[in-house]
Design a protein around this nucleic acid. Sequence first.
DNA 1: GTCGGTCAAGTCGAT
DNA 2: ATCGACTTGACCGAC
Length: 322
Amino acid sequence: MTIVKLGYVAMSVELQNCSPSQTMTFKQFQAIKDREAAIRKLERIAISNLENCLRLLKHSVANDITFFRFSSRLIPLANHPELSDWKYLKSLKEPLKALSEYIQANSMRVDFHPDHFVLLNTTNKDTLNNSIKTLSMHEALLRGMGVDPEHRCVLHVGGAYEDKGKALEQFIHNWGLLPRSLQALIMLENDDTTFTLNDTLYLCEKLGIPLVFDYHHHLANFENEDDWETHWERVVGTWEHSPLPIKMHISSPRNEKEFRAHADHIDPAMFNRFLQKIKGTVPEIHCMIEAKKKDEALFKLSEDLRGMEGIKMMNQASFMLE
DNA sequence: GTCGGTCAAGTCGAT
DNA sequence: ATCGACTTGACCGAC
């Protein structure tokens, strides 16, 4: 028997005026003559983003969802070089505390997917330093929310730089330059153009990093289409020392031509075929729904799965495979 | 109210 | 060479 929990990403298509990713560009920041006033505006935006996150969590819990990925754009310009003197955490204490209380009270699993500028296998020093800075921000936010930062940020391996083998070894080299607290944050995901499941497993096993399997990416980028089945036990093995249950990403191709793009919703038949293959291999698995329609896609998937062969619904966002 | 252009950051594939 | 996509837009000004 395996318990499956569904989560969704960053924002709701149902809640109005609830963006957790409101922003201010550097250009807009500079246009405000009074720098202190401009910083206060940044802080107002960040506070509003965090308050909207709390609304999103409440909306989620009201619908049985306890698994959620935060936007990584909560604090506009947080790591901009011209704003290195801005101590943004100071102004965010209260909204972070409110999130902390709600997350604990409802035993939520929350995490991040830092954006694609975070590259751990780059040979460019500045890019690596900026990546470290961005990861540190994520760690600080997690601590502010009272969440143990271990395995809360999923990243891609990075760029191929015209030599994938060399790029993998560069990752290992750079890993040694990361502070331990940041190493602990990280999970790695197979990507849809460069680093396959097999490539990613190589790093995860060598460095002790949990692997977040993305089935859609695998279908877009594989050595053998079915090899995920032979590698599945290895994927499970990368979670052996994690305090959290294994997690994976679920999405469906938009269409044949735009195969890599996310569809509005999830194809339930394909998802169930996948689930029936992994049934019983783990006691619990958390599936992050990556679909254009966000929470609506989760609710629709849940409806579609109800009554399907081998599925026993527990509530709107979790079910048993039996 | 809707549409098009714009906005910090890196890399890749498509054109 | 340039552009859009990526993992998740949002905002502003023109109409």
